[in-house]
């Protein structure tokens, strides 16, 4: 029997950078030219099978991008094992927003959270405002994973999720549905994932 893991993943980022489209591509391998705004949050799951037959089931919380929904975010990144912070390569302001999400995660989320910075809309390369160098440099400085994707063409989408799956602590006891309710619900109260924080490499930033 192959090993099975279940992880909570949260998508954050400015409005209209393509968070939902990224998830739709990942989960259903589809793309809509027009996709409605997300209100509140959406929940989806997708399972990734790694080379060694290990399966990683992502429980994905896709959040709304508008600033006024920000106060809900902690509910979704709390206890998250990984976060994909998305920006739009054609909007430099969206990278700024991504930075602020990263800062918040570093301060507030589980210290062992795996954060991936994701530049979406590479199909619009002609209108690029955020260079790969700039984003990569920032990601390196902060110890984030980084990748570029196009939810529209599918480019890079499965790569980034697979890379996250590989980076997650696959040595921890697999959490199975039902075994730990907390892992199944973003709004679950008062229960930690039964997983120890494994790293303190991300600094607290302003806490010094």
């Amino acid at each position: 029997m192959s090993k099975q893991f279940q992880f909570k993943l949260v998508l954050l980022g400015e409005s209209a950078v393509g968070k939902s489209s990224l998830v739709l591509r990942f989960v259903k391998d589809q793309f809509d030219d027009y996709r409605e705004s997300t209100i509140g949050a959406a929940f989806l799951t997708q399972t990734v099978t790694l080379d060694d037959q290990t399966t990683v089931k992502f429980e994905i919380w896709d959040t709304a991008g508008q600033e006024r929904y920000k106060s809900l975010a902690p509910m979704y990144y709390r206890n998250a094992n990984c976060a994909v912070v998305v920006y739009d390569i054609t909007q430099s302001a969206s990278l700024e927003k991504a930075r602020s999400w990263v800062r918040e995660l570093q301060r507030q989320a589980d210290p062992s959270i795996v954060i991936a910075l994701c530049g979406n809309k590479t199909d619009l390369n002609a209108r690029r405002q955020v260079s790969q160098e700039e984003a990569k440099k920032y990601a390196d400085e902060e110890g984030l994973m980084w990748g570029e994707t196009s939810a529209k063409t599918g480019e890079g989408v499965s790569d980034i999720f697979t890379a996250i799956a590989k980076k997650l602590p696959l040595t921890a006891p697999p959490s199975r549905p039902g075994a730990n309710r907390a892992s199944a619900s973003g709004t679950q109260a008062g229960v930690d994932l039964n997983r120890n924080p494994v790293s303190t490499e991300q600094t607290d930033g302003c806490n010094c």
Partner: peptide, 25 residues
Amino acid sequence: STLVDEPITKVEFEETKPTPTSTST
């Protein structure tokens, strides 16, 4: 009807139009 765990190894590059029928599973 819509919910299929697609294997991530399978990548279709087709673009579906946002009409309800074409996006169905």
